[in-house]
Write a protein that binds this DNA or RNA. Sequence first.
DNA 1: CTTGACTCTGCACGATATTGCACGAAACTA
DNA 2: TAGTTTCGTGCAATATCGTGCAGAGTCAAG
Lengths: 251, 251
Amino acid sequence: MLTSERKALIQQVLRREGRLVAKEFSQKLGVSEDTIRRDLRELAGEGLLQRVHGGALPASSAVADFASREQVGSSVKARLGQAAARMIQSGQIVFLDGGTTNVQLARHLPHDLKAVVVTHSPSIAVELVHHPSVEVELIGGRLFKHSIVAVGATCAKAISRIRADLFFMGATGIHPETGVTTGDREEAAIKNLIARQSAETVVLATREKLGAASPYQIVPLSDVGTVVTMSDLGEEVLAPFRSSHLTLVEV
Amino acid sequence: MLTSERKALIQQVLRREGRLVAKEFSQKLGVSEDTIRRDLRELAGEGLLQRVHGGALPASSAVADFASREQVGSSVKARLGQAAARMIQSGQIVFLDGGTTNVQLARHLPHDLKAVVVTHSPSIAVELVHHPSVEVELIGGRLFKHSIVAVGATCAKAISRIRADLFFMGATGIHPETGVTTGDREEAAIKNLIARQSAETVVLATREKLGAASPYQIVPLSDVGTVVTMSDLGEEVLAPFRSSHLTLVEV
DNA sequence: CTTGACTCTGCACGATATTGCACGAAACTA
DNA sequence: TAGTTTCGTGCAATATCGTGCAGAGTCAAG
């Protein structure tokens, strides 16, 4: 294990998990704690991370915020993202919507995956800069700041030229009757367009989204191919989504 | 085993495995470590890989790359960015190129500025999400990970539809004779296109960029309207840039 | 064919980097 | 406050680095 390799790994772990415990990490890598501590000290000296008692946190406060939120709300989204990332096969063209769950998905893409990721979210694009083999196609347009995704006519036109194998859709609600919904009309239209351009649409749904509904419908439930959700939800919540045309993946 | 053969093999291993340990590799090839070290040093000199203690890593992992670049004189860049941000007037349409200096510019945009920022850099877009009144137009395309900007035909087409008042260009070198240059051909083409679509081109140049030249010319110096740089540079460095058509802003 | 310039390679050696351990200081926890 | 964990530093062992140098091979001019 090369020193710089180890340092790169440390930063990767911080990006992915939002924190790093010195002792834990030293055991995982089979080196002494001193070595890890030294690495952390040096990286902190370069401003690349924030040193804390017992380990380290990401440098930027924004990421730190995000990381702590993640810890509090547990790593449900990370688990969903990880499961979803495994659905992608090499050579596929996948559309990644914006949103924190999809950021997790991007973070957990297998290191050796060769695929094309299309996205209208600059956050996702930035996240994938660190991936060694995934090619990123960024869709432009007017930036809708609330969701951090591009929308508008330019965006729609660019999307209409692309056909994807998979679409990982972000949404605020998924309901047996109202279908998949979100809070912005234009965003809904864009998502709908992407869904129509994709062979299969996948929705990653945390507990609070299942059975919820927002003002604007993106697609009816019949247009969704797969829903990825947690396995510890009650059957009464899941039952409405069990049907012949929809694959329900429980993580 | 020819030297060039060995060097090619080294690069192949790096592409395939993402790392190379000098000792290990020398044994596998049956040559001395010195030879391998020499090869690595030379390849690193050509920028084809990143030399590290014990071996080598791929050149543009962009990971530590961008992060470390971020660190290089960030306070200087912040001052340049701040000065440049003041050049923008309300109501203008400005094009913000990628790069760490321009991230600083984005960070220092006056809070009450009402303007449209066009960018092909997802990093810049994400940075501006928190600005209350600036509207962001994201230009899409294939993501060039090293610089974190969109490039390619789609990108060029989108740019050709926009006319901006100001273009804050990122570059790796600005030289009286070779003009403004950068390290990637396609990136240079995109930057050139943006410059042609803009009424005025501004270059933010830290000390090491002034008088430097990279392989690909973006525009000749005569196409640059303003250069923003530090005031503590020697006159012998600045003199070649003092001319009637170019405004030299010293911060 | 010989000679001289040049390149490549391996070796020697002093310099530098990295690592693990020891030990007292500081921080955290109950 | 007391006990435990983590931290930082000094130190020694080891690994790796860079450089100078010499031998071997190549090539072209004489």
